[in-house]
């Protein structure tokens, strides 16, 4: 079956048509660099994304602290993780890259601060 992808790894956004044949990936159309190939293989297996969002912070100049997952997570887990993150509140001061939640929703992925505040 021919599958169509738009690579989201870099801003070029290459369009890639591939066919999976007995576990082998055949490029039919488009430009696929090494990172693009990795992306397509991962998309076929399980789409993953870096989740970026915010958590409430007390004692800082602003109400929200920006955070992200330190690794890409399965796309399907995003709603559950967002629910977990919504419950969190932290206190200033926080340093950039401080771990805010360890092993979120059992994914072995951490939620980290993306700025100092």
């Amino acid at each position: 079956m021919i599958k169509h992808f738009t690579c989201v790894i870099c801003p070029i956004g290459c369009e890639i048509d591939v066919e999976e044949n007995e576990g082998k990936l055949i490029l039919l159309n488009g430009n696929m660099c090494a990172r693009g190939k990795e992306f397509v293989i991962q998309e076929l297996k399980e789409p993953i994304r870096v989740l970026t969002t915010t958590v409430r912070i007390k004692g800082a100049e602003f109400n929200m602290l920006p955070v992200r997952t330190d690794k890409p997570i399965p796309k399907r887990l995003i709603p559950i993780i967002m629910e977990d993150i919504a419950k969190i509140e932290v206190n200033a001061p926080i340093k950039m890259y401080k771990v805010i939640v360890k092993n979120i929703a059992g994914t072995r992925v951490n939620i980290i601060a993306t700025r100092s505040m």
Partner: peptide, 25 residues
């Protein structure tokens, strides 16, 4: 950059996939 909390910044300058606040800091 401070409010652009999504990633996708810095692939050329820092060779890393950063969020806006990280890039700014």
């Amino acid at each position: 950059l401070k409010q652009c909390i999504h990633n996708g910044f810095g692939l050329e300058l820092f060779k890393k996939d950063l969020t806006g606040p990280e890039y700014a800091e």
